[in-house]
Design a protein around this nucleic acid. Structure first.
Lengths: 192, 192
DNA sequence: ATTGTTTGCCAACACTTGTTGGCATGACTG
DNA sequence: CAGTCATGCCAACAAGTGTTGGCAAACAAT
């Protein structure tokens, strides 16, 4: 059923998708126009509609993303956070889809849904492997720090965070992630 | 020079500004239309133009914001982070300007500039009062965690972070902010 | 060679956007 | 009271948006 032979237009489809990811990453959902995407792909705007149906569905296709998180069960407990953080930074820098998703998710409902889905469907299971209490809360905390870092570093270009070297960034932030993942529940909370 | 008598249109001006903050906070810069803002303020769209000149300048006026950060010199060192964090959460929830700024800063250049300016001009000085090394780096780290928290909690509505009680949120995140503010430089960095 | 299908472009649509000029009504000033 | 200015609305513009239908050329199949 799904094994369709390669079409002659596959290259065009791919060019559109690549241009879409770039534009969505650079401009966000509303400012990235179909005309601009089509121009980048050196194609007519109507082609985008024919192959992807609508701007909404084009974005859905462009925002498909796999974090490719590593198995953490094999790594020593003390290195879990820095490994995870390193992976995130790499993933963020070599695939603009995440930036596109972040930029769009702030104004676009579907993008926000996708962002939530990625973190709950991909990050939560990894945290669950660590066999801690409240894995979903811990995953949420990790998400808050990582998304905040990405926001400052890649989107806002906030001075010190955007220019900080990767080792220094990891040295500063890994302890935070480590505590969110494996640290004890704060006393105030378990008490109340 | 600047002491102009109150005009009869001051109420309208205020209504426009209030509606603008709401719309920019809810929809971001591009999706918040002048027509919608005018409708909320129950006046004609052309009034918005007359009183604020352009959409860009309307946003500039709506994004004026004072964090009203407290003096930290008087508070005990151990409570500096939770005090700062509490203040941020309160400020974020009782004034939608910050959400407007966050939503807009992801796609709008001027908004991003304003966001950077707020953090460098208002947060950095407070951190400097603590007399630590590298106050700007520390302020950037604090910003990354606080903006990430706000993003997950108020904009994306990421499940655990959006529903977590304020005390629990503070209990989890204050230690992070505390370390960013007053913790020692990570060994890996001072070594390298 | 003659179909039929795919790939692509052009032109246009319906709509929304920010923005502008003119015209009325009301409120103050002399 | 006459005149000036502020306040507000209406209508319209020019530009840009997503989206659609039709038509020409290139390809595939018979």
């Amino acid at each position: 059923m799904t094994d369709e032979r390669p079409r002659r237009s596959d290259a065009t489809r791919a060019a559109i998708l690549r241009a879409a990811k770039e534009r969505f990453a650079a401009d966000g959902y509303e400012r990235a126009t179909i005309r601009a995407i089509a121009a980048d792909a050196a194609i007519d705007p109507s082609m985008v509609m024919r192959y992807y149906g609508s701007k909404e569905r084009l974005f859905a296709a462009a925002a498909e993303f796999d974090l490719r998180l590593p198995e953490l069960s094999g790594t020593p407990a003390a290195e879990v956070a820095s490994m995870l953080l390193t992976h995130f930074l790499e993933r963020w820098e070599d695939d603009e889809t995440l930036t596109a998703l972040l930029r769009a998710s702030v104004t676009n409902q579907a993008a926000a849904d996708r962002m939530r889905e990625i973190f709950t469907a991909q990050l939560v299971p990894v945290v669950e492997q660590l066999h801690t209490d409240q894995p979903r809360v811990r995953a949420g905390l990790v998400a808050s720090q990582i998304l905040g870092l990405a926001l400052c570093r890649y989107v806002l270009a906030l001075a010190p965070m955007a220019t900080m070297s990767r080792p220094e960034t990891i040295a500063w932030i890994a302890p935070t992630v480590q505590r969110y993942l494996l640290g004890p529940y704060p006393a105030d909370v378990t008490a109340g």
